[in-house]
């Protein structure tokens, strides 16, 4: 394995991981506040991509291109998807707030499946891709010479990584430095005492459902620029994988979701990449899923509450 090959795979892993991390954050935020695994999150991500597609088509149609076209698409898709998220919470989850936890989980599963099939019924089976929002040159490969071998990347990949990191920093600031963020953290510590302190539960939950889906929408738009196929089922597998990432990191913990996302990206890429070594040739890409999930299993056996998860003390 040459150095260029290693760095190339590292770049691949970071880019894949940053998207997983963004989606995983949505799971973790909602979980932290509501103790709800929002299984509809993957499909909210899909909805974000679809909304992004319609916004972008509109913008490009009226002649708004790079850079405003991209920024506005990202913004509008985040806003509209956040509205969708808040709406879902209001209509489907709020009536169940006192219900057993798992009935809400199954409602979330149902909401996700409903979104998928509404998208399929309403928009048809055709795959779509975003109209060109970025300049051509951003999509073309740029090569850097590393010790005689070339490392290729596109500015798009760099852009995705930068925007993801930026969003994660913004989120961190919101959660750490604002009152709402403080309330969110407080609720995740004790959801019975905090409302007694005068913290408006409904508003904090609404804020959570603004943050999570808007991150998913940003991930959706960026995902659709990097992987230009938008379809109703696109959120299914990515959603599950991001959920895994969130849990491996320690669900409910924001750093955990980021780290979990990157870990999943790294594992998926490097299980394939390491097969390059003759000694590790059993790690062919055929066995990727097998090895990757076995690794996750081991992580959870060693650290049963994920990497950042604190073992919950049980009251006896």
């Amino acid at each position: 394995m040459t150095l260029a090959f290693f760095f190339q795979q590292l770049l691949n892993a970071v880019q894949l991981g940053s998207i997983y991390a963004l989606i995983a954050l949505g799971y973790t935020l909602v979980y932290g506040v509501l103790r709800l695994i929002n299984f509809a999150h993957g499909d909210i991500f899909m909805a974000g991509a679809f909304i992004g597609y319609f916004v972008a088509t509109l913008l490009v149609g009226v002649g708004i291109g790079w850079p405003w076209g991209f920024i506005l698409t990202l913004l509008f898709s985040m806003i509209l998807t956040a509205l969708l998220g808040v709406g879902i919470e209001r209509v489907a989850y709020r009536p169940l707030r006192t219900a057993p936890r798992l009935s809400v989980v199954v409602t979330a599963l149902g909401v996700g499946l409903l979104l998928e099939h509404i998208a399929l019924g309403a928009f048809g089976a055709s795959r779509r891709n975003l109209p060109p929002l970025l300049p051509e040159t951003w999509m073309q490969s740029v090569e850097i010479n590393i010790m005689g071998e070339y490392l290729s990347f596109t500015w798009l990949k760099v852009l995705i990584i930068v925007i993801s990191l930026l969003l994660m920093i913004i989120l961190q600031v919101i959660v750490r430095r604002t009152k709402a963020g403080m309330a969110m953290r407080a609720i995740s510590y004790d959801k019975f005492a905090v409302p007694l302190m005068g913290v408006p539960m409904d508003r904090i939950i609404a804020i959570t459902f603004i943050l999570g889906p808007s991150l998913a929408a940003a991930a959706g738009v960026m995902y659709a620029t990097q992987y230009p196929v938008i379809e109703p089922y696109m959120g299914l597998l990515v959603g599950w994988q991001a959920f895994i990432a969130a849990v491996v990191g320690g669900i409910g913990d924001i750093r955990g979701a980021m780290v979990g996302g990157f870990i999943l990206g790294f594992v998926q890429i490097f299980v394939v990449a390491l097969g390059q070594f003759p000694a590790l040739s059993f790690l062919s890409s055929t066995y990727r899923d097998l090895v990757a999930y076995a690794l996750l299993l081991i992580i959870l056996v060693v650290k049963p509450t994920g990497i950042f998860g604190v073992a919950t003390r049980q009251k006896v």
Partner: peptide, 29 residues
């Protein structure tokens, strides 16, 4: 069953999902 001694709740959910993926991938191979 064995991971379930220490791992609970949503973490065990991931264990079961992983086992599902592992079995499917193993059969594919």
């Amino acid at each position: 069953a064995f991971p379930s001694f220490k791992t609970r709740g949503d973490y065990l959910a991931i264990v079961t999902i992983s086992v599902n993926f592992i079995i499917k991938s193993a059969i594919e191979n």
